[in-house]
Write a protein that binds this DNA or RNA. Structure first.
Lengths: 171, 171
DNA sequence: AGGCGATGTTTTAGGCTTATAATAACTCGG
DNA sequence: CCGAGTTATTATAAGCCTAAAACATCGCCT
């Protein structure tokens, strides 16, 4: 039976240390995975399409949202989905507008808001990249069976919820 | 039974698409996890210790290596371990030297190499931060049982190996 | 209508990160 | 010994990213 941190904060110190070491190991390995995968995707995007990962992510996010929001997303909504700050997005969108891949128009009902949407060139660029992107990922995930993947997905879901909920209380 | 990509590259197209979607979902969720956790650790380091995550990682890496290499690590070795480029490290070490947390000396046997090591102030700073860092992680991982963690660790190990080995061949 | 808090975006300053090119020092075969 | 290739590091240019502050607009309340 695994002990819960919340329910038993006073169990022996050695248990804490063992547990913390095992958490750290897991966390570092996860970081290594994302670094490796992100690095390879970044390099492949640069080599094959002369673009960057954040640009690709932004285009992909707009495309993914296009069923719900066919006219585009606001800057805030986009930054929330990409998990980056608003300020970061400003420059990123600037560059993509300059490249003609996205359009940025003021929202008529709310003059503060900017609606960002894919241009047809943006759609075309994304369609050109997406199959390769999927292939690269498939290639890197190839040793995981479908069951492995499903299990990983479930565990990550649990972790995500846990990390989001965690209050950063420090005694 | 799960089909292998390598052994059966000609199975029906719909299987490919399902598999790719499931891989993408898993990958995006993993990215979300690391973004959330990294973000919270970054924020906590800034709030409580007025420092940054890369600085902390560098100090921690030097400390972790201190048993093997008590006199410090070269820039190249450090950049390899931190999984960042050499050029990145130059500035990072510059800032830490300016803050007095690490020392950088030329290696006598190889005058090209720079050996970076923790100063006593650096050790002290790290010792002050490490318990909190472990606590933050423990807090964010709290909903995962020990079995969950072990399983996650194993799956990530498999993924890491798979991603490292993957050749970025594109047909 | 006017003010006021909330929300959406950009600006600013600084740091992180990469890729590429340049510089310096090592090694080793001839 | 000396030059060619290799390895270690730094410089440079561009982009990514954050936090905090500034600015603009909205919605609401009186």
């Amino acid at each position: 039976m695994t002990t819960s941190i919340r329910s038993d904060p006073l169990r022996p110190r050695v248990d804490h240390e063992l547990e913390e070491r095992s958490i750290l190991r897991t966390w570092l390995r996860m970081l290594a995975c994302t670094n490796i995968i992100e690095g390879r995707v970044r390099g492949a995007l640069r080599e094959k399409f002369d673009t960057t990962l954040p640009r690709f992510d932004l285009l992909a996010q707009l495309d993914a949202a296009s069923c719900d929001a066919p006219s585009g997303l606001t800057m805030s909504e986009l930054s929330r989905r990409l998990m980056v700050t608003n300020g970061n997005l400003t420059g990123l969108v600037d560059r993509l507008v300059r490249e003609g891949l996205v359009a940025r128009v003021s929202s008529p009902p709310d003059r503060r808001a900017q609606i960002v949407s894919l241009t047809s060139a943006g759609k075309a660029a994304l369609n050109a990249m997406t199959p390769d992107h999927a292939l690269w990922l498939r290639n890197m995930f190839q040793d995981l069976t479908e069951a492995d993947r499903r299990h990983l997905y479930t565990l990550l879901g649990k972790l995500k919820r846990s990390a989001q909920v965690a209050t950063e209380w420090t005694p």
